[in-house]
Each structure stands twice: as C-alpha cells, then as structure tokens.
Amino acid sequence: MGGDSKYLGLWYVSPYILGFAMFTAFPFITSFYLSFTDYDLLSAPEWVGLENYEKLFERDRTFKKSLSVTLTYVALTVPLKLTFALFIAVVLNYRLRGINVFRTAYYVPSILGGSVAIAVLWRYIFAEAGLVNMIITMLGGEPVNWFGDPGNALFTITLLRCWQFGSAMVIFLAALQSVDKSLYEAASIDGAGPWQIFRNITLPLITPVIFFNLIMQTVQAFQEFNGPYIITQGGPLKSTYLLPLYIYDEAFKSFDMGYASAIAWVLFLIIMVLTLLAFWSSKKWVYYAGDKRS
C-alpha cells in the first residue's frame, strides 16, 4: 500500500506494544528483581541478594517436596495424555458412519477444560462414596481411596487432565488427515502391515505436531493450578502440592512477594531449559516436509 507512511503499520500494532510493555515485559523484569528481595507489601522491597535462592535449595523442604511432585506430575501427565490423544486420533482418522458424533463426544470434556465445574465434578466422582468406587464395588473390587491416599491423589489429577485430551487430539487429527494417502497405498501394496505403516510413514510425517503438542502440554502441565487447588488443596501430606500452588500460597497468603518470585523464576527456568532442549533435539527427530534430510 504505496503512499502510506512507513509508520502506519506501527499505529495498528501499537495496542500490542503498549500491552506487551505494561503487562509482560515490565512484570517479567520486575519479578526477576523481586526474586532478589524481601518484600512483604508493607515496606519497600529490601535487597537480599541470593538469599531467597539459597533458602530454596538449602533449607526449604516444602520446596523440595513441591518440586519433586511437580516433576512427577509433568512426567506422568504429558506422555500419557499425548499417547492417548494420538491413539484416539488414529482411530478416528477413518471413514466410519457416525464419526462426527464420536469426535464431538471426545472433544466436549476438553472444551469445558480447566473449568472449576469439572474439577468439582472430579472431586465428587472420585470421592470415597463417589461414582467410581460405586462401580468398582459393583464389579466386586475393593473401593479405592483416590484422594485420601498420598500415593493415589496425584494420579487422580493426572487422570482428570488425560480425560481432557481433546485439543491435542484435534491437532493430531488434522495432521493425520494431511498425510499423503498415496504413501499408504504404496506401502500396503509392498506388503507392509498396519503397525509398520504407522511406525515408518505416519509417525515421521506428523513429528512437527508431536513436537508442538509436546511443548504446549509441557508448559501447561508445569502451571497446573485449578485441579489440585480445588480437588485436593495440595494434600494429602502435600502429595499434590504443585509449585504453582506453593507460589500462590507464598505470594497471596503469606504475602512474601520476594520469595514467591524466586520460586516462580525457578519454575520458569525449568520450563525454559526443557523447551530449549526440546527445540535443540528437534533437529534430530522432527521431520519437516520439503526438508532434504529424512
């Protein structure tokens, strides 16, 4: 659009620049600064150097527990959810009568997503007198203490998030549908079985979306808050006390803003390092169409 000033576009994006500066860049830098201070909202932030971090790694047993719970949760939830999502996407990627009904049914739990209502539902379904135990008893099993037992509580929250695999599945499904069909025909005429076809043709071709889903789901899992906050309040015995809960408690219950910022930065750095690792390793396993390597 020739005659316009070269700054015209800048006017259109100016809301973003303003928003980014005020609500992202400024808070981002401030939180880094705050992590080196002691700040209780009553008096001005007081510089304490590395003290918060020292306390975190040397003296804070709650942090140690919370960190290990968080890592366990992510290591459990992300692979389970993605495998399940991919599996269902493969099953759905087929011309069956009524396939749209299934697609919708599978997607509804995810659309309701992180809502409080669903967490509430979960709390009652897995309660001691809840639906799941009723069905287990009917089938002749022993009722399970889903939330009361520290060994089970975290897994029950993982189950909730796996139940909401829909958006990862929809992305997988779109990728599966874009795979060139002639490749399958050629392979099956050459005598390849279904598993071989999946392993050697489908899987390499959809690595870009596997990569995308992996990163998005990991970043999200590290920030899980609603599930444990509403269902278990972090308990029992802190077995579901994820880092975001700890940060929330330190910041908005104890008003220890400096210490909470330090925990937030540790969490952020973990996410960052893992994301960078994923990007770095992607050169070795992610295949992009039109790419010479294969």
Binding site: M22, F23, T24, F26, P27, F28, T30, S31, L34, V219, F222, Q223, P244, I247, A251, F252, M257, A260, S261, A264, W265, L267, F268, I271
Partner: peptide, 13 residues
C-alpha cells in the same frame, strides 16, 4: 511465556 512468572508483578501493578 508461562504466566506464572509475570503474575506477582502484575498484581503489584
């Protein structure tokens, strides 16, 4: 960018 890292200063703002 995880929201968790900007949340506290946003609150202070």
């Amino acid at each position: 960018l995880p929201d968790v890292v900007t949340r506290i200063p946003q609150y202070l703002l």
